[in-house]
Design a protein around this nucleic acid. Structure first.
Lengths: 225, 225
DNA sequence: TTCTAAATGATAGTAAAACTATCATATTAA
DNA sequence: TTAATATGATAGTTTTACTATCATTTAGAA
């Protein structure tokens, strides 16, 4: 049995659905590779088109501009993460164990997921660490937000917030703690590799220590072990 | 007595020192205003030059490009914050009280500081919240880091890490906790105003609640009150 | 005060980025 | 089989991100 994971994406993210054509999937796959290789700033639709073997105009038929493409990729990532959180916590009763699972999923490098042929999840994880916040750190965030472009991110945050409340229903900041876990799982990773003196993991570059840091942070706040 | 605050900046941040001429100071002042108004992405040296009443070439004599200018502004901000941390904690013995001061300084809107004539610190604080991470989230971070462009940020983080250790010398993640406080003081503020469902402060938009959240987070981890 | 060096202004120009438009051809779905 | 849709090829525009040159103004040292 072959299972294919399809994530339903918000229609406003694209002009033409990239999941429904070969060219579209190539655009996603190659843009993830290119952004990973050269960074989002020097990523252009021209380079992408050359990489794929199509033309600039061809890419513009799918995405309004490169920023929308970044939001698309980020939204895909958050949806995929929420899916993984859902399946990997579904059989667990203890909310604290669930929360540990979540932290691990957020902070640990992922292997390439065979279920999605056209996305390399490992590279995707790395580009979201370095470029993900640029999706929403803009002046047009409120319009983008009205179009629900950040819904997957918010949904994931809400889900983690729920688990936090299951751990301790009297805790006052479940959503802020959730967004802190999400962002810090990424930032501490970025710092560890790029500005190591901002972390306590610089020497051994061991991602499991980020997990331990986050666990201690979270469970101290929730007053449970 | 009139006190003028001068922050000594790393020479590699600029081509010509903007603090040493009227035009240079105008560049700093107006770029802060323009970035605040339109965001860093749509900020250009041409618009800046028009705003000031000079030419594009005039701006390029001071800064290699707009990204360097952003790093300069961010470095200035971190240096200024460290200075404020130093003076406002200098007479305090209790490290926990110091740490609370630090959290407040990081998470609370500042009034315009009269000691620096050409920088509006309140607007500066806001642009660092929205654009600050873009200074280091790039592909050329390692070269920039070798040039010590992020030293003020690291110094501040180290200083906060020291205070954390003074609170609890057995705490294992002082530097990661410090960078978490710094980043979250900003991100929770950004979220509160722009993606409020990622926080627990969306309704009243009260910055003092961010302070309370961070205090609880930090002091729970440090096992002290 | 005068001379000289440095800073600024004015203008021009280039390469690349960020699009938009058009038309021909290939593919697909009814 | 035809009609709609997707793609390819080409061309063009505006803006961004610079670099170069030279004249003029300003500031600092003799």
């Amino acid at each position: 049995m072959e299972i294919q994971l399809q994530i339903k994406m918000n229609e406003k993210l694209f002009l033409r659905n990239p999941e429904q054509s070969e060219l579209g999937k190539k655009i996603i796959r190659h843009s993830i590779q290119l952004i990973h290789k050269n960074g989002f700033e020097s990523f252009t639709f021209k380079k992408l088109a050359e990489d794929i073997g199509t033309t600039e105009a061809g890419v513009y038929r799918y995405f309004e501009n490169k920023h929308r493409l970044l939001i698309y990729i980020a939204a895909w990532y958050w949806s995929w993460l929420e899916y993984r959180v859902t399946i990997s916590t579904s059989n667990i009763k203890d909310p604290a164990v669930k929360l540990k699972k979540v932290i691990k999923l957020l902070a640990t490098v992922v292997e390439d997921d065979v279920k999605t042929s056209y996305v390399n999840e490992n590279i995707l994880h790395q580009i979201i660490i370095a470029e993900g916040t640029k999706a929403y750190l803009t002046k047009h965030i409120s319009e983008d937000n009205k179009d629900k472009l950040f819904k997957p991110y918010k949904d994931l945050c809400a889900k983690i917030g729920e688990i936090i409340l299951d751990c301790n229903s009297r805790y006052k900041y479940p959503k802020s703690l959730a967004s802190t876990i999400i962002e810090m799982a990424h930032f501490q990773n970025f710092f560890m590799y790029n500005l190591p003196s901002l972390t306590d993991f610089g020497k051994d570059k061991d991602e499991s220590k980020i997990v331990m840091f986050l666990e201690e942070l979270v469970f101290s706040s929730l007053k449970i072990k």
